[in-house]
Design a protein around this nucleic acid. Structure first.
Lengths: 202, 202
DNA sequence: GACTATACGGAACGATGGTTCCGTTTGTCA
DNA sequence: TGACAAACGGAACCATCGTTCCGTATAGTC
């Protein structure tokens, strides 16, 4: 179980616990960053985040050594939530529904948090966000759902987890641009139909 | 017929013709910019383009008032090529093949020119690239191909040109990130299958 | 060949934005 | 309550990059 915040709220192991104000501020920064990154994109100046958090930039930088690391912390948190959701669907009686349901959930999550997929696929982002472990966890979780759905005959056999994630990611990115026409869920519909086997396609 | 380069090679109308060296340099800048934007993305410093063109930045800026305009010039040129390709396929006996063939062509073009779709859909790009006319031309051309394919029963009726372009754009953007796995054409295959009507899906 | 408008190069400017530094404040503990 | 380490704020620093400016070079013309 990885520690998303990067610090132990209350005492632990070697390092002494954070002072009360430090704990509070760290949380505020994380919350502000999450909101601001989601609405403004990754390129917002750190000052904006600090201001929204009611904190000086110096404080922000004591908690996160770099803007990139701050973003990564949020990213990891979100990825872990998605992984948990995916795992929760894994035992379903209807693996096809579980798989497609997760894809819908994924798109819903992502359209509200624009930065997210952009970062994951590295498009338009200057720095290379790592979060490698969390990414891999998500990929594995999706692969599990996919395999079950394929075994149940609900999804064609010639696609991989990577392909599915790319398709969904692309959908979200595309929806980002053409705001009005081409709603994300319309795009997802086409993709889901493409993923079905010929037999099960309506 | 719009004039992509924004200047008349040899004499015309009101303004006097460009001096020979100016014409040469303008071309060099366009070529260098096309290559560099394609390989490095839109965020390359203009110095890089100027250097590759064997020209000072001042020269670059005399020909194109702004980096954005330079990019737009290239974009318009590419869009016009695509429109021409689309129009050429319009009279085909097999509208379905014409439509899907164009989508393949589109993806092939775009994966080689990374900047392209990113700019068209505005994701990750700071400035708003205009090229409104050229974009609209492409949308119209795609819509024509789509309508014909739908009339022929090769494509489901509940999709619009905007949806198709978003899907293809998303595919290209997604392929950008996950380089190895998830080849663009694999993704496109799924999308094309999703676009087919139930009757024609293999 | 000389003259001039045109074009060139690239140093310098200004804006932006990530990161650091240090004087001040504050929580914690005795 | 006093002392000290920990944390804070935000001005200053530095790097990057788009754009401008101006002294120099050159194509075109007589």
């Amino acid at each position: 179980m990885s520690n998303t915040t990067g610090c132990e709220g209350i005492s632990e192991g070697g390092a002494r616990p954070l002072r009360a104000d430090a704990q509070r501020n760290r949380l505020r920064v994380l919350e502000a960053a999450e909101a601001v990154f989601a609405s403004e994109g990754i390129s917002v100046p750190v000052d904006v985040i600090a201001e929204k958090a009611g904190v000086g930039v110096g404080t922000l930088y004591r908690h996160f050594p770099t803007k990139e690391k701050l973003f990564e912390a949020i990213l990891i948190q979100r990825l872990e939530e998605l992984v948990a959701d995916a795992r929760g669907r894994l035992g379903s009686d209807d693996p096809g529904a579980a798989f497609f349901g997760f894809l819908h959930h994924l798109v819903d999550e992502v359209v509200l948090k624009r930065d997210f997929i952009l970062a994951m696929s590295g498009a338009g982002v200057e720095f290379e966000v790592v979060a490698a472990d969390a990414k891999e966890d998500l990929q594995n979780a999706v692969a599990d759902l996919l395999r079950a759905a394929q075994a149940a005959g609900a999804v064609r056999d010639d696609v991989s987890g990577a392909v599915v994630l790319s398709l969904v990611g692309g959908t979200c990115m595309a929806a980002e641009g053409h705001h009005q026409e081409a709603a994300p869920l319309d795009l997802l519909q086409i993709i889901c139909d493409g993923l079905r086997t010929a037999e099960t396609s309506s």
